[in-house]
Simulated scan of single mutants.
Amino acid sequence: MTEILSDPIFSELRPRLVRLAYRMLGSVADAEDIVQDAWLRWLAADHTSVREPAAFLRTIVTRLCLNELKSARRRREAYVGSWLPEPIFDPEDADAADDITLPLMMALERLSPLERAAFLLHDVFGMDFDDVSSAIGREAAACRKLASRARAHLVKARPRFAIGREQGLKLATAFFTASRTGDMAALRALLSEDVVVYADGGGKVPTSLRPHVGLAAAMLLHEQLARVFRAQPSRLIHFAVIDGLPGFVTIEGGNVAQTTALHIEQEKVVAIYCTRNPDKLRHVIGTIPH
């Protein structure tokens, strides 16, 4: 890392490269590995022949991610239970974030690797299709078609009703209080009729293997959890915006146990995303305010 920081060009571009790799792969650890590999290739490159370092490095990261996606998809086919992307905390500076939310990240999983790359590079990271063409090795016209197909698949995953950060965290606070104190009436008032609860334990901690669909199923689950929380309290660390959604981080038994992100539309929670797989929470520990 010290060597990277000593290179002003790579150091400046690194956060954006990590974000691109994370959006491509859904894994913080894999994104960091990809960017480290890109750094080694940058070191070996003839910098005098590189006219646009940003475009050069985006191309390297994109191609490395496309290669990684092949093995990542095989791993996810064998994944135990619901798969969720590793949680990341959005910066408070809106200009430093993008408009990709957790539901959209999950929808990206259903795209082909090339559709995913074309959509992210053009629609999210603002590259023109000539540069996208260079990055993924397809004609510009083909890249337009790839991005268009991706948009068509992602329409339903895009938020229909934007919610402000402050209001979202206010509702997350109400959800945490109701769910941890066992106030089922207050909790019911927060949930939509078609709410879905996803829990990702990766087969390493106890979680439901399938989503809980509908208000009745969600309420039954939280009634059971309320009894667990009375016996083993779930302690709040802090509230945060997690992959574009309001949520919070909790501790159980002295360890970071879960991130919870809430998809909210028209003041109602329509989806709850609980990440409990300890492998996906390792990077969270270093980002927790003390």
Score class of each variant (00 low, 15 high):
E115F: 14
R116A: 13
A118N: 07
A118H: 05
L120S: 15
L121S: 09
L121G: 07
H122R: 09
D123R: 14
V124P: 02
F125I: 13
F125E: 07
G126P: 14
G126Q: 14
M127R: 11
D128L: 15
D128Q: 07
F129L: 15
F129K: 05
D130E: 13
D131T: 14
D131P: 13
A135H: 15
A135D: 09
I136K: 03
G137P: 05
G137I: 14
G137R: 01
R138G: 09
R138Q: 08
E139N: 12
E139A: 14
A140G: 10
A140H: 01
A140T: 02
A141D: 07
C143T: 12
C143F: 04
R144D: 08
R144E: 08
K145I: 09
L146F: 13
S148L: 13
R149S: 13
R149D: 10
A150M: 11
A150I: 06
H153V: 11
H153L: 07
L154D: 04
L154M: 04
V155N: 01
K156W: 05
K156D: 12
R158G: 05
R158T: 10
P159Y: 08
R160E: 02
R160D: 02
F161N: 06
A162F: 07
I163G: 07
I163L: 08
G164L: 07
E166F: 13
E166G: 13
G168T: 04
L171C: 10
A172V: 15
A172S: 15
T173P: 06
T173G: 15
T173W: 10
A174Q: 11
A174Y: 05
F175C: 02
F175R: 04
F175H: 05
F176W: 06
T177H: 09
T177N: 09
T177S: 03
A178M: 03
A178T: 01
S179P: 03
T181L: 00
G182I: 00
G182E: 00
G182T: 00
D183C: 03
A185G: 01
A186G: 01
L187T: 00
L187Y: 00
R188L: 01
A189V: 00
A189G: 01
L190Y: 01
L190T: 00
V195I: 06
V197Y: 13
V197W: 11
V197Q: 12
V197M: 15
Y198I: 10
A199W: 04
D200P: 14
G201L: 14
G201Q: 03
G201N: 03
G201P: 00
G202K: 14
G202W: 06
G203P: 06
K204D: 03
K204M: 04
V205M: 10
V205I: 11
V205T: 10
P206F: 02
P206N: 04
T207A: 14
T207I: 12
S208K: 10
S208P: 00
R210V: 08
R210W: 11
P211F: 11
H212G: 03
H212V: 08
G214L: 05
G214W: 13
L215N: 02
A216G: 02
A217V: 08
A217S: 07
L220W: 01
L220I: 00
L220S: 05
E223D: 08
Q224T: 07
Q224D: 02
Q224L: 09
L225K: 03
L225N: 07
L225I: 06
R227L: 03
V228M: 09
V228E: 09
F229S: 04
F229C: 04
F229K: 06
